[in-house]
């Protein structure tokens, strides 16, 4: 009898730890995320997607803004997965590079603007939880993640554009 009781206790303990983690997330993470996401996506709805189309069009012109400003606008205003639709503003030979830059920004953006990719928050938040445990504020990590993200998407755009051009040349 004791054996069964002990087993049952052990079994429940296994899940109690999970329950503690779950409740700390629900109370610690969700309220802020809800308010932040509501506020930012309301502002973005007020500005409106159409209003940034012209800016997006301008950003396609040169190689630097094409793989920085354009993906950032797309991710902030359209979020995952509609951000890829801004690919229609760039020429066919730049589309794969645009895709690569855009998709690579979907996680660096979540530290500061979680609304843009609310379904995949835990790439950042999982690691950020550890930083919080140690008692450090998250601002610094979020800002650096965002900035390094911009550098990385620019390089990805550049490299993918060159590789696509090479593949295309070999094809012909």
């Amino acid at each position: 009898m004791d054996l069964i009781a002990n087993f049952a206790n052990g079994f429940m303990n296994l899940f109690k730890a999970g329950a503690a983690v779950f409740s700390s997330w629900v109370t610690g993470i969700i309220p802020l995320i809800v308010i932040l996401m509501t506020a930012v996506s309301a502002v973005i709805k007020l500005i409106g997607e159409e209003r940034i189309h012209r800016l997006a069009q301008k950003a396609t012109g040169n190689i630097i803004t094409r793989y920085t400003i354009l993906p950032i606008l797309a991710v902030l205003f359209l979020g995952n997965p509609m951000c890829y639709s801004f690919g229609r503003f760039v020429e066919n030979k730049h589309k794969p590079a645009y895709y690569d830059a855009t998709v690579s920004f979907l996680h660096p953006v979540t530290g500061l603007f979680p609304h843009a990719n609310g379904g995949e928050l835990f790439v950042y938040m999982g690691i950020a939880a550890g930083v919080t445990t140690l008692g450090f504020p998250l601002g610094e990590l979020a800002v650096r993640y965002f900035l390094v993200g911009i550098v990385v998407i620019f390089i990805r755009g550049l490299v993918t554009e060159k590789i696509y051009a090479a593949l295309k040349a070999r094809e012909q």
Partner: peptide
């Protein structure tokens, strides 16, 4: 996301230096 969460736990426990959070991402 799962790996991120697991690494987060390890960072929290001090097994991984905290400044490595950025490259780990």
């Amino acid at each position: 996301q799962v790996v991120g969460t697991l690494l987060g736990v390890e960072i929290g426990l001090g097994h991984i230096p905290v400044q490595y959070a950025l490259p780990a991402l």
